[in-house]
Deep mutational scan, measured.
Amino acid sequence: TIDDAFRAIERAIQAENEGRYREALKHFLDGGEMIVTAAEKEASQKVRNLLLHKGKEVLEWAEHLAEWILE
């Protein structure tokens, strides 16, 4: 659900702030994927587009974090 997705993102932010970057990455990926999944089930085109945009933002952040971890 969207609530689960945002809880995962909150955990990711907390982990990132505490320097637990790999854990943060996992939570960002989980949250982003949950948002995209919820968007695919959404009946309203406007809400679907907003959710897809937010999911994409979260997944892009996860990608940047992963690249930073690997440096």
Rank of each mutant, 00 (worst) to 15 (best):
H64Y: 08
A12P: 03
L59K: 06
Q45N: 08
V36R: 08
A24G: 02
V36I: 14
L25R: 03
A62Q: 05
H27A: 08
G19Y: 03
E57A: 10
E23T: 04
Q45M: 09
Q45T: 11
G32R: 05
E71M: 12
A15C: 12
A24R: 02
A12I: 03
F28I: 04
F28N: 00
E60I: 07
R7I: 09
E18Q: 07
V36W: 09
E16Q: 15
E67N: 13
A66I: 08
A62T: 02
K26F: 08
G19Q: 04
G55R: 08
K54A: 12
A43H: 08
A62P: 01
Q45D: 10
E33I: 13
K56F: 06
A24V: 03
A66D: 01
A38Q: 07
H53C: 13
V47Q: 06
E71F: 10
A38Y: 11
E57D: 04
W61L: 11
A62E: 00
E63V: 12
E67F: 09
E60Y: 07
Q14E: 08
L51Q: 00
W61H: 13
I35L: 15
G32E: 09
D3H: 14
K26L: 08
K41S: 08
E23H: 06
M34S: 02
E60H: 12
I13R: 05
G55E: 03
A38G: 04
A66E: 03
A43S: 10
L50A: 11
R22E: 14
A24W: 08
L59R: 08
E23R: 03
I35C: 07
H53W: 09
K41A: 09
I35M: 14
Y21I: 06
V58F: 08
W68R: 07
D3P: 05
E71I: 10
K56R: 11
I9R: 00
K46Y: 13
E63C: 12
M34I: 12
A5D: 01
D3Y: 11
K56I: 05
A5F: 09
V47R: 12
K56T: 04
D30I: 14
D4T: 06
G32T: 08
D3L: 15
V47Y: 08
A24F: 03
L25T: 01
E10G: 04
A62W: 04
E33L: 14
I35Y: 08
E10F: 12
G31L: 14
R20G: 03
E42A: 08
L59V: 07
L65N: 00
E71K: 09
E40T: 12
L51V: 01
D3W: 15
M34V: 04
L59N: 01
N17D: 04
A8F: 12
I13F: 07
E71Y: 11
A38P: 02
Q14L: 09
N49S: 06
V47S: 04
L59S: 03
R22C: 15
G19A: 02
H53N: 13
E16L: 15
M34E: 02
G19F: 03
G19P: 02
R22F: 13
A5H: 01
A39H: 04
